[in-house]
Amino acid sequence: MARAQGARAQMALAFETTYGTPPLGGYTRMPFASTSLGSEQPLQASELLGYGRDPLAPLKDAVTADGDVSVPIDAAAFGFWLKAAFGAPVTTGVGPYTHEFRSGNWVLPSFAIETGMPEVPRYAMYAGCMVDALSWQMARSGLLTASASIVAQGETIGTSSSAGTLAALDLVRFGHFNGAITRNAVPIGNIVSADINYANNLDRIETIRADGKIDGADPSIAALTGSVAVRFADQTLVNQAINGEACELEFSYNLSTGESLSLTAHAVYLPRPRIEIAGPQGVQATFDWQAATDAVAGRMCTVTLVNDVEAY
């Protein structure tokens, strides 16, 4: 009897034309490190009295389908997650192509994901998927991955794949070594680590249905937040926080082969941090920043991806 192993698992993704209806084809094989995406249905314990001390059988509660997917930040496949989080990009160029994803879209695309474990076999199709949040961390070393939080409409289990023949993309990963952070187009020194989190704050439409699924997930007010841990060397960021001023922060990755990825937060506000002296080591300060819409750019942030993919 075969036992499922993560090493043989696979994931396929395709964008939907109609919410909750998985496409019949056009799926792309997606690289991923782990996933908790799944459907669960808890049980409600019986509250009835008069049948002795032993309880009656429990009742099924509502079905919830959601979870997180850990994905590599690469030059090709990551564009699918950016499209799901921000909407379709504005693409220019004739190769390499420049894809510009902009925050503030009222309508976000839904997609279908199939996760497969061929040993069992078990193929789970998740329809009506939408990205609730996309986050990652910048550091000095380690593997560079992002976490995509997904809200799905429901799950369908099969013994064979419904995705058909999968399109494959070249995996060209960015690494922490390729990262850089600038403030108002000037490189920032003494940055130890940085966190970036973009949230669509999806509002689940939990209507009464016979199948227990949700009717949809509408994007609410978006949020772009994060933190930067800085070795305390000057007063630049502290003065900005005290004065309540905004700055532009850009988090970017560049490869020698020409591929690049950058997230530009056009108007970032910093809180006034506590400066602690914890011992003889260097002094660090952490700024939990928040981004807001910028009057000049007309939006909160822009993500630019340069690669050889013609369209998403």
Rank of each mutant, 00 (worst) to 15 (best):
V131R: 00
I196F: 06
P31D: 08
F101A: 04
R204F: 06
F78R: 06
N178Q: 09
S147T: 11
P23D: 09
T21Y: 02
I188E: 13
L202P: 07
A265P: 11
L237G: 00
V63H: 10
V303H: 08
G258T: 03
G164T: 07
P96V: 03
S220R: 13
T64P: 05
V94F: 00
Q5S: 15
A65P: 12
L202K: 14
A278K: 02
V303T: 00
P219S: 03
V238P: 00
T225N: 09
P219L: 15
A4S: 14
V296N: 15
D288F: 11
G244T: 04
S262Y: 05
E259N: 10
D66Q: 03
G95I: 11
A285Y: 02
N184G: 14
L43E: 14
A210T: 06
G298R: 01
L249Q: 05
L134G: 09
G175N: 07
S103Q: 10
P89F: 10
I205W: 08
G50P: 15
V230C: 10
V94P: 06
A9S: 14
S149T: 09
D54F: 04
G258R: 02
G244C: 02
A57H: 02
L143C: 04
A57E: 06
T293L: 15
D61C: 10
T156D: 12
L255F: 01
G164A: 09
L249G: 09
A246W: 01
F251Y: 06
N307Y: 10
A223T: 01
P187T: 12
T264E: 01
G6R: 11
Q137R: 05
C301D: 06
S149I: 01
R3N: 10
V238T: 08
G87C: 01
I150R: 08
E119W: 06
N243L: 15
L224A: 04
S39E: 14
G298L: 05
A246P: 07
G142R: 02
T286V: 15
D195T: 01
F32S: 13
V120L: 02
A168P: 07
A84S: 14
Y97T: 08
T286E: 15
